[in-house]
């Protein structure tokens, strides 16, 4: 564990609390992509299946439980409790285009051709692109509630902080995880446009609006 990873994980935690807070205070999941949230559940379940056979630490254990539970809870909020506030007609990204390639890539590029190992790899590739339906939705509507942008910023910060974590681990522990690094760089790259608008508009007190 190092500071970058800890801050990254805390940022990830914060993003989930912000999202739940947004849904509950506005009593609405408007502007949130159900598809992205469903992909995150898939990612966490596929990756944290190792809860059953690999012990890392108490920290790691509770974080995994939290991420699985909170992502399922968010799906529940969107699918049942605040269902009428979700508009499927603007959440139309074809998730097959993300899941399909993630399956194929994980079968080809993995560390070991074993079921749980391929599930881990699949979760890494899928997480890299899981935000796309959400960003696509944002692009389509051209605007977002400020709280939603804070959620995305915290989520993006989590990914960005993992990069210095890998650099740090390379020098201090001589550890390199090429699959996580390549996928992580792609994932962080997807946030660049968003971050640009977030820093130049939202943090200056303006509404998040994309140029027409």
């Amino acid at each position: 564990m190092n500071l970058f990873r800890l801050l990254g994980d805390l940022s990830h935690l914060a993003s989930i609390f912000i999202l739940i807070h947004k849904i509950q205070t506005t009593r609405s999941c408007r502007g949130i992509s159900f598809q992205t949230q469903a992909l995150y559940v898939t990612v966490f379940v596929a990756r944290y299946i190792d809860l059953f056979f690999r012990w890392i630490s108490l920290y790691n254990f509770f974080m995994k439980i939290f991420f699985i539970a909170s992502s399922v809870y968010i799906l529940y909020l969107m699918k049942y409790r605040y269902r009428p506030t979700h508009d499927p007609s603007i959440d139309t990204f074809k998730v097959e285009y993300l899941v399909g390639p993630a399956v194929v890539l994980s079968l080809i590029f993995n560390y070991k051709f074993e079921f749980t190992e391929i599930l881990w790899t699949f979760s890494i590739y899928l997480e890299a692109v899981a935000i796309l339906p959400q960003l696509f939705m944002l692009q389509r509507t051209g605007e977002a509630e400020t709280i939603t942008t804070h959620y995305l910023a915290a989520l993006g910060a989590y990914r960005a902080l993992y990069i210095p974590n890998w650099i740090y681990r390379y020098f201090t522990e001589d550890v390199v995880d090429p699959i996580a690094i390549v996928a992580g760089l792609v994932q962080t790259g997807l946030y660049l446009d968003f971050f640009y608008v977030y820093f130049t508009k939202v943090l200056q007190g303006q509404k998040f609006e994309l140029p027409a």
Binding site: R5, D9, H12, R47, D50, R54, I56, S57, N60, M63, K64, F67, Y111, K112, E117, W120, Y162, N165, D174, V175, V176, D177, P178, A180
Partner: peptide, 10 residues
């Protein structure tokens, strides 16, 4: 070395 199967990150 490469962290094959360590997977200690979240």
């Amino acid at each position: 070395h490469v962290v094959e199967e360590t997977h200690d990150e979240l």
